[in-house]
Every structure is written in C-alpha cells, then in structure tokens.
Simulated assay, not measured.
Amino acid sequence: MLVKTRGVVLNYIRFRESSIITKVYTEALGVQSYIVNSVRKKGSGSRMALFQPFTLLDMVVYTSHKGGITRISEYKSAYAFSTIPFDIRKSSILLFLSEMVSRTVKEEEENPALFHFLYNAIIFFDEQRQGYENFHLVFLLQLSSHLGFGPSSGAEIVEQVAFTANAQSATSAPTMLAMQAYEDYFDQLLRQPEQAGIPNGKVRRELLAVLIRYYQLHVDRLGEIKSLAILSEVLAE
C-alpha cells in the first residue's frame, strides 16, 4: 500500500554500490527505514542532499504489514534551507540533534505533536540569522517533554544528575555544589528561552554535558553521541 506523508530525515547508511538505507521520522508512520536506490551516483543527477540529517521531505512510501525496511515511491524537498547548509555551526548543531533524535525516538507509529515539533523547530532554526547559540539546549529540553521525561525546573535536572554523580564517585561529573550554579540557567531555558543569559560557550558545553547525562538517565542504551565531539569543536570559543 502507498502512503503520502511528510518526513524528517534522521540519518542514512550506504548500501551496495550507489544506494542507501535511510531512517526517516514520518508524520503518518513514525520511525521508518527505506532503501533508496541509485541516489549516490556521481554527477548532477545525485540526490544525496535530500538525505542529509534533518532534511524535510514530501514522500509517497510503500508500507508492509510485516514491517521492516521498505521503499520510497516518490520524494522531494518539502522546504529549501536558506542558511543551514552554508553555516558550519548550524549544520553541526543539526547533525548532533538528528543523532539525539535517532537514538531516542523509536516508535513506528504516528505522533503528530512530536512530528510537528521537529518539523517546525527545524524551519525556525533555519530562519534564525543570529541569536541561535542556545537552540540545541532548548531543543533537547522541549524534546524531553515529548518523550515523557521533561523536567519542570532546573533543580529537577541538577538533582537527578548530581545524585547519580555522587553515587558513582569514580566519574568526573561535576559535584552537587558546582551543578547548583546551572539551575538558574536551565530555568531560563525552560521558561524564557529567548532571553536566556548563558554567558559563553564554556558554560553552554557544561550545560549540554549535564543535559546529555539527564537523557542517559531516562533513555535506555543511549550510547555514545558521536557527533558531540564535532559540535564541541565547532562551537568552542
């Protein structure tokens, strides 16, 4: 059966000589994997740009009652990025966030609220010309709410992460006293993200480390976020 749906590309892996297997979060079917043939061919006919992380697509896809990997009948860009491909900071942020979504969102069923959050957040990010330094932090806080473990305050994040850090003293995680300084920053990001006064890149990286640890407490087998090192390097001040 064919289904028409919008989709948010999460990632892809190479498959055979010129094909890929791409994971897409679809509006109608949740997380799906598709084989796309002849997409990696050289020259002007290549359509690999359409399967970069967080690309937005209009698609007609095959479905099967057996589940598993299927195919895309038709696909085209649903929104043409105006800034992201030309800004290494933005593209690095989206690479990181797409990996986080890929590792945390697993359901093969529709979730309109989550899909619209992802779709609209990506467009909003592309439209921002400045003042987007905290976007990845705000995005992860809002995503956690859609995933069912959104914090109500900065203290909730800090207390949970600090408790596990104290219980695992062999780690190099910040102490409870040091992490209390982050509570106000998280409160700002939760309640007034546009006005959050994060002072510099160093503090942002520390907040992100705490937030990733918070995710690890709530998402089984989150694993290593491979794109984090790239993001940290690009955003370093």
Rank of each mutant, 00 (worst) to 15 (best):
Y12Q: 07
R14G: 08
R14W: 07
F15T: 01
R16M: 12
S18T: 11
S18L: 03
S19Y: 07
I21R: 04
I21S: 03
T22N: 04
T22V: 13
K23T: 15
K23P: 05
K23Y: 06
K23M: 10
V24H: 08
Y25A: 01
T26F: 00
T26E: 03
E27Q: 13
A28V: 05
A28N: 06
L29N: 01
G30A: 06
Q32N: 09
S33W: 04
Y34K: 03
Y34N: 02
I35Y: 02
S38G: 10
S38W: 03
S38Y: 10
S38C: 04
V39L: 03
R40T: 05
R40D: 07
R40I: 04
R40L: 15
K41S: 10
K41T: 02
K41E: 13
K41I: 04
K42E: 14
S44L: 14
S44D: 14
S44F: 10
G45D: 11
S46K: 10
S46C: 13
M48L: 15
A49P: 07
A49L: 12
Q52N: 09
Q52A: 09
P53V: 10
F54C: 14
T55R: 04
T55E: 09
L56Q: 11
L56D: 14
L56E: 09
M59K: 02
V60S: 06
V60T: 12
V61S: 12
T63I: 12
S64V: 07
S64C: 06
S64Q: 11
H65P: 14
K66G: 10
K66E: 14
G67I: 03
G67W: 04
G68Q: 07
G68F: 00
T70Y: 09
T70I: 07
T70M: 13
T70A: 07
T70N: 11
R71P: 06
I72G: 01
Y75H: 06
K76D: 15
S77D: 07
A78V: 10
Y79G: 03
A80F: 12
F81S: 05
F81Y: 15
T83R: 15
T83I: 03
T83W: 00
I84D: 04
F86L: 11
R89K: 14
K90P: 08
S91L: 11
S92N: 04
L94Y: 11
L94R: 07
L97C: 06
S98T: 08
S98N: 10
E99Q: 04
E99G: 05
E99D: 10
M100Y: 12
V101T: 03
V101M: 01
V101I: 10
R103I: 07
R103T: 06
T104G: 11
T104Y: 09
V105G: 00
V105A: 00
K106I: 08
E108N: 09
